[in-house]
């Protein structure tokens, strides 16, 4: 009988509790259940870590995939160059290495050439005082009308 009564009243009790819980703001319920905030902090930090660790694993895997792809591309290119090199000059033994050195030398020469092209600028920002050499073209006295004189 007691059990039956409990079974009958339990839903009503649960409904009352749920309704009471509905009246209390969610943050207040959180405060009541976790007054120190320690549990909430642990859970929240765990979620932040999980989110970022998940990204870490994906980025790590993806990065490895990309590195492998790049290496594959590089190896393919090197193989292609190695295949072509003997036809150009069969005597050249370490073809790849030599080609890289040539490219580096050409790049350096180009860079030096470009740097020479650049006009060397003074690092002094202030305007240099120009020497005022007299010229009738810039002469102020010739640029203004003569003062009228009374005859």
């Amino acid at each position: 009988m007691g059990m039956k009564k409990l079974m009958l009243t339990l839903p009503a009790v649960l409904c009352t509790v749920a309704l009471a819980a509905q009246d209390i703001p969610r943050d207040e319920l959180f405060r009541q259940r976790d007054p120190s905030g320690g549990m909430m902090s642990i859970i929240a930090m765990a979620v932040v870590f999980s989110a970022l660790v998940l990204i870490f694993f994906v980025l790590k895997g993806f990065g490895l995939l990309m590195i492998r792809r790049e290496e594959g591309k590089k190896a393919k290119a090197e193989a292609a160059v190695a295949a072509e090199a003997p036809a150009v000059n069969p005597k050249r033994k370490p073809a790849l290495q030599k080609m890289e050195e040539e490219i580096a030398a050409a790049a350096l020469a180009l860079k030096m050439f470009q740097e020479e092209q650049h006009i060397k600028e003074s690092t002094v920002i202030t305007i240099n005082r120009a020497s005022r050499v007299y010229s009738p073209w810039s002469s102020k006295i010739h640029g203004i009308a003569p003062t009228p004189t009374k005859n």
Partner: peptide
């Protein structure tokens, strides 16, 4: 992207948020 393990440092520094949460309570 070049050093993905650094992303977890960004998670660890969020400790300040929850430290302040506990103190504010």
């Amino acid at each position: 992207l070049s050093n993905p393990k650094l992303i977890t440092v960004g998670a660890a520094a969020q400790l300040g948020i929850f430290g302040a949460y506990i103190l504010a309570l």
